[in-house]
Amino acid sequence: MNVEITLVGAEFVQRFSATRRGARLARRLAVYQLDEWGVPYGSELSDNAAVVVAELAANAVLHGNVKGRDFELRLLGLADTIRIEVSDARGERGPEPQPPRPDAESGFGLHLVGVVATSWGVKDRLVGKTVWAELATTP
């Protein structure tokens, strides 16, 4: 599906409480913002973005939480790419993701991000870290 982002260079930044509710709100607002940018709600790109935001926000809440600190969601409309960044206050990084066991009930999040994103990674910040992923807007 070929989707043209109408606001290339546009940016959306919002902080959320580092709670399950905050993670859920981040996903909902991301999909809303993408729809405003011309990525239709329910499209494959919108659904993939929702998955990425949900996984990165959940990880920020579960593994990057520092008491009293929020996490931040940033969306960037770039040429042929949507960049999703989720930043948390914990600078430590966990071990490199390993393939989850077939009988595991968790541990699939970053593997799922790797499947739908064209690229993803982690970068340090002055306080904490940012996990980012990019989604192609053209096939």
Score class of each variant (00 low, 15 high):
72 E>F: 00
41 Y>V: 11
103 D>K: 08
21 R>F: 04
29 L>G: 00
22 G>Y: 11
139 P>R: 09
88 D>R: 01
41 Y>A: 12
44 E>G: 10
123 K>Q: 08
31 V>G: 08
31 V>A: 15
124 D>H: 04
122 V>W: 02
99 P>F: 09
125 R>D: 13
18 A>H: 07
69 R>W: 03
70 D>I: 00
59 N>E: 07
53 V>I: 03
65 N>W: 01
112 L>A: 04
105 E>S: 14
121 G>R: 09
127 V>F: 07
70 D>C: 00
114 G>R: 14
44 E>K: 08
135 L>A: 05
71 F>K: 07
20 R>K: 13
45 L>M: 06
79 A>G: 12
33 Q>K: 11
87 S>M: 04
68 G>A: 08
29 L>A: 10
71 F>H: 03
52 V>P: 02
93 R>W: 05
59 N>M: 06
37 W>A: 12
5 I>F: 07
97 P>G: 10
10 A>H: 14
39 V>Y: 01
38 G>V: 13
3 V>Y: 13
80 D>V: 01
93 R>M: 10
79 A>L: 15
129 K>M: 14
36 E>C: 15
63 H>T: 09
28 R>S: 10
135 L>G: 04
28 R>I: 10
106 S>Y: 04
99 P>T: 10
71 F>D: 05
117 A>F: 08
110 L>V: 05
45 L>R: 06
125 R>C: 15
25 L>T: 14
56 L>C: 03
21 R>T: 15
7 L>W: 08
72 E>C: 02
44 E>S: 06
36 E>S: 14
33 Q>E: 15
22 G>Q: 09
60 A>H: 03
124 D>S: 13
58 A>N: 13
62 L>M: 11
77 G>E: 11
37 W>H: 12
132 W>Q: 05
51 V>Y: 02
63 H>R: 06
58 A>M: 10
43 S>D: 11
67 K>P: 04
86 V>K: 02
79 A>H: 09
37 W>C: 14
95 P>Y: 08
126 L>H: 07
84 I>L: 05
21 R>G: 07
123 K>H: 15
22 G>H: 06
128 G>E: 12
